[in-house]
């Protein structure tokens, strides 16, 4: 009993639970462990997975970003419209990155320099940016003119679609940034104790601006891939994404109180979200139930996290 407890509540507890759950699902759900289904599953979590990379930094530094869903839709929109207008996919991509990064920069400056609460600030930009997407497209989907744009999502490398490769690359890059760079360490330090970090010489407000700007840029990448996959810029795309992404991070053991984050945890969190949805689809469970199940998983994960913190005696 004690060793089981240790295993579940230890550092790798989530990974263990994930592995067990995966094995059970693979054995009991028909058609789950097929190449086609696996790729479909991964495809379905690309947006969440990519955005979760930077959301992890945001949460780890005790911040919050609700504007990611809107930013994804807006930058996807911008990418499509700019490439349609200019006839160049590259210009579309650059325009999307500029817009996404711009939104993030505004978030960061307002939050860090003007000291406005992150929740309120991003709640505001979430609506503003969604509004901009709707205004730009007049509320309608904008189709992609250049078939080359589809290739971003459709092309494959070694049999695996490009967006999945992009997601994997992001996991690796941001995992590296978190664990092996001063930027990552400072992010965790700010989350652990912002005032102590500031007095220790960390430029806290610059760091926060950078984290939000990065979040915006990453949203733009996710937005472009999403637009390519749904073959159009949709002003209503990615609604509710912010909640899924934050759920995935929290599932992965990122502390909302800041100071604690791990890339592996976030990856597992993202996959759990994906698997839950995938399995319910395979079992033909009505979509309405999926909300309930997702919520329950999140609650369970948070409870588990709480137990783990108590076990580690970190609550002081």
């Amino acid at each position: 009993m004690t060793s089981l407890k240790k295993l579940l509540l230890g550092e790798q507890g989530l990974v263990v639970i994930f592995a067990v759950a995966f094995a059970i699902v693979a054995l009991t759900v028909p058609n789950f462990l097929t190449e086609r289904n696996m790729l479909g599953l991964l495809q379905s979590v690309v947006t969440i997975g990519i955005v979760a990379c930077t959301m992890m930094f945001c949460l780890a530094s005790r911040d919050f970003d609700l504007s990611v869903g809107s930013t994804v839709a807006f930058s996807g929109m911008v990418a499509v419209m700019a490439s349609n207008a200019s006839g160049s996919i590259l210009i579309g991509l650059i325009a999307a990155l500029i817009c996404g990064g711009g939104v993030g920069l505004v978030n960061g400056v307002v939050i860090a320099r003007f000291r406005i609460n992150a929740l309120i600030t991003t709640l505001a930009t979430m609506q503003i940016v969604r509004g901009l997407a709707l205004i730009a497209s007049d509320g309608r989907a904008v189709g992609i003119n250049d078939p080359g744009f589809y290739q971003l999502a459709l092309s494959k490398f070694l049999g695996i679609p490009t967006p999945i490769w992009v997601m994997i690359a992001f996991f690796i890059v941001f995992g590296f940034i978190l664990n092996r760079t001063v930027f990552g360490k400072n992010t965790l330090a700010i989350g652990g104790n912002p005032e102590a970090s500031r007095l220790a010489g960390v430029n806290v407000s610059n760091m926060r601006v950078w984290i939000f700007a990065l979040q915006g840029l990453v949203c733009a990448v996710a937005g472009v891939l999403l637009a390519s996959r749904i073959t159009s810029g949709q002003p209503n795309a990615a609604t509710g994404l912010e909640l899924s992404v934050i759920s995935a991070c929290v599932l992965g053991g990122v502390s909302l109180a800041g100071g604690r984050a791990a890339m592996t945890g976030v990856i597992v969190g993202v996959l759990i979200m994906g698997i839950a949805e995938n399995v319910m689809n395979l079992l033909n469970i009505q979509a309405f139930y999926q909300y309930v199940v997702r919520g329950l998983i999140l609650l369970l994960a948070v409870l588990l996290d709480n137990l783990r913190s108590a076990a580690a005696g970190r609550r002081t």
Binding site: V182, A189, G192, N193, A196, L199, A200
Partner: peptide, 21 residues
Amino acid sequence: KFDGIVQGRNIEENMAISSRR
């Protein structure tokens, strides 16, 4: 507690936080 140490981080990280640059 509030202005000095960075809780949840180990000794090494607390020491190197500034000088690692």
